[in-house]
Structure formats: C-alpha cells, structure tokens
Design a protein around this nucleic acid. Sequence first.
RNA 1: CGGGGCGUCGUAUAGUGGUAGUACGCAUGCUUUGGGAGCAUGUAGUCCCAGUUCGAUUCUGGGCGCCCCGACCA
Length: 405
Amino acid sequence: MRQSELFTKTLKEAPREEEAVNARLLAQAGFVDKTMAGVYSFLPLGLRVLKNVERIVREEMTCIGGEEILMPSLQPKANWQTTGRWETVDDLFKFTSFYSRSDLVLGGTHEEIIAPLVKKFLLSYRDLPRAIFQIQTKFRDEKRPKSGLLRGREFVMKDLYSFHENEADLDRYYEKAKRAYQKIFRRAGIAKKTYLTYASGGTFSQYSHEFQTITPAGEDTIFICSGCRVAINKEIAGSDPACPVCGRKELDSQNTIEVGNIFKLKDKFSKPFGLRFKTAEGEEKDVLMGCYGLGLNRLIGTIVEVSHDDRGIIWPESVAPFRFHLLEFKKGIGQALYRKLTSSGASVLYDDRAVSAGEKFADADLIGLPWRIVVSEKTGSKMEVKSRKSKKSQLVNYDFIRKLG
RNA sequence: CGGGGCGUCGUAUAGUGGUAGUACGCAUGCUUUGGGAGCAUGUAGUCCCAGUUCGAUUCUGGGCGCCCCGACCA
C-alpha cells in the first residue's frame, strides 16, 4: 500500500491524556482511535493487525477441531434468567427495546446462546465431542476501562466452547486447548513472557487456567515457578504461595495482563438449559462443557506493551500490518521496487509521500514494521535494509530482500 | 463505585478578572529532501450550564468528559 493513500496520519506527539504505552503508541502511530473510554476504532493499520491476530487464532482453533460460527450480540433476558446470571453479572449491558418493550442484553459472553443452540443438534453420544468457536465483539460495562486496549467496554474476543460426554474427554480436550493457546502466544511473539497460571474459577467452578503475560502495565500479580514455567495467581495463592506443580516456594512475583482464560464448565450451563445426550445404552446424561476465551484487543495491546522501544512499536513479523516499509528519498525512485515486491506477493507499505527524510525515518520507527528498506540516490542499484529490532542497516540486492519475505 | 489529577485551535503547550500567544498541523506559493526542513501569507481555540462582576477563559457552584490509584472483573 502506498502511504500517501492512508487516510490516517501519525501524530508528532502522543496524546497527553494517555499514559499506557500501548494507548500512546497505537494512537500516535494511527492504528486506533478512541471514541470514548474503553471504546476504540481500528484504523487501516490497526485493522490489519487485528486481522492477522484473528487469522492466527482461527488457524489454531481450527487445528483443534473448532468449527467457526457467529452468534448474536443482542440477546434476550430470558436466557440470562435461565442461568440466574441476569441478576448476578454486574457488568452486563442491559436495556429495553423501545418498540417491542422486551428486555435485552448486549452479549459479554455466550454460554447463554451456545447452550440452547447446540441443544438442537447434539442429541446423541455420536454427536460428541464438539468444539465450536466464534470471533466476535463483546460488551462489558466495565466499572473502570483502562490502559488503552487492555481493558475495554467493547472488544473483539475469541470464545470457544467444547462439549463432551464425560470428564475424561473434557480433560483431554482441555489439555489440547491449552497447547493450542501456547502455540498462539508463540506465534504472536509473546510466549517468552506468557505463563500458564493457575487461577480461581470465578463464577464457574474451581477449575481455571489463565495465560498471563508479564508487563508493568498488567493489573494482575502472579507468582512464577521458573523450573516448571507455570505460575499461580495471587488471588488464590494465599499467604504462603507454592508452585502448583512441584510445590516449590521460591517464586518470582510479576505484574501481568491476562490474555486468555480457560474453564471447565462441566454441567454448569448444560443443566439449566437441559443440554443432555443419549448414551450408547440409551441413558440420558448432561453434556459437559469447557470454555476458552481470548481477548484479541488485549492481545494486541499486550504485544505493544511487550515489544516497543522509545521510538515506537516493534511488531513481530506474524502480526505486523505490513512486512516491509519501503522509504524513498527521491520522488518515484522506489516505485519500481514497490511494484516488483508487491507483484511477487510481498506485503509492503510504500512511503511515497513528499515529506522530509527525517519524518519518514521517524514514522517508520513509530509504525514499527519488521523490515525497513531505503532507496535513494545514494543506494544506487542496491537498497538499504534494516530490521526494526536492530540498529545496523546493510546494503543489499533485490534477491536478499526477496528472501526476507 | 470510593479517592486523586486534568479539561485552552486538529495536536502539544503558554497566559490573563479587560485584545488569548507560541510550535507543529492544515491551505497557498517558492525553495528544500539521509533522522520530524526554510521563508512568506493565511486558517483555526478557552468542555457545557448557572452564579458573582461593568466585564469571566480566569473566581464560585453544578454538570459532562478523560487519565491514574483502589474496589470489582463470567
């Protein structure tokens, strides 16, 4: 894409009102725009990142047998009364339809929809197990939205629900989902700082695992066992925390942000909706459920928190909006290279703007694409390439760049 | 929801009970092009509502909004 065609522009300075690094950099570089506290627009660059993250998550969910659907955000009060959560969930957006006079909910999670939905199809042990997921906007009336993309009132979330005939099968799938999550964080470039964390089950049950990523902007505290590479959430750790796996007490305390959370729901939602199946013996039993959430906005915000320097964002190659940032220091001098790269399938942001070299450099650092390519009168038939992560650049030929992506 | 901070052109900031200034941006023209260029001419602002006052952007009260700490977080 030609940068001159981007309707967004970078800001010379970050908005003063933002303090969180992800909010400052994403707004300054033009990835997102805040409409109100905890509610953001994704602009062209930001949307490309969101789509990339979506693709990774979708691939890994498909890989563990997930079938993708899309459920409604508008939900009826009755379903929430069935589970008793109409009264108990306090960050639910509730309102009344003006014309139909019915009470409605803006979905903050989808157990109330998925359970009655699959009840229509999962009737026999032959239909189990199943895993169904969606990537969809969630609404939560947060008491305190904060830290840019880390805690919003409206956000994109992947939620997967699994359905099983017995606990052994649920356990087996739960472990599989765990591994899929670890793969997602590896692909998103935050695996080194992300820990499987033992946590409370919240309103569901005693069984829950979180995926917590170390960042000073995080709002949770976890105790890490470096030997096992797992952690325990401070919330359930008690006064004398020990590693939940090996029992060790020498743990490292860290601030973290929760990027994913997986639960064994068992029959918590099957029971109220009467989600049952017939066994091979003709007996009726409750379907057992698991649920597996992952906040995409939060994942993006976390990546920025974990991967930036004082000049801007440093995107991992897997989620970067473009792979190459091509800067030309003389009008039109980069055009041939741009055409050549894009026609060979490379993803390129081409800075063809008539602005000063300094501004192009500064914007390239701020936007943070993995590879910066400079062509000018100085580079001649060669091109200068530099990784966003490194300080050194080198003069190379076209083949070298082609091999980069 | 409790506590704190802050609201001045699009952005970042200065300032005052009496004409609101600077830089960047934006517009036009010319000159520029390897780390946020130069000159010239323009453009644009005191969050809202009351009160005090001859006069309020400034003082007082209320509201709204944003950020931070805490509580909460399926």
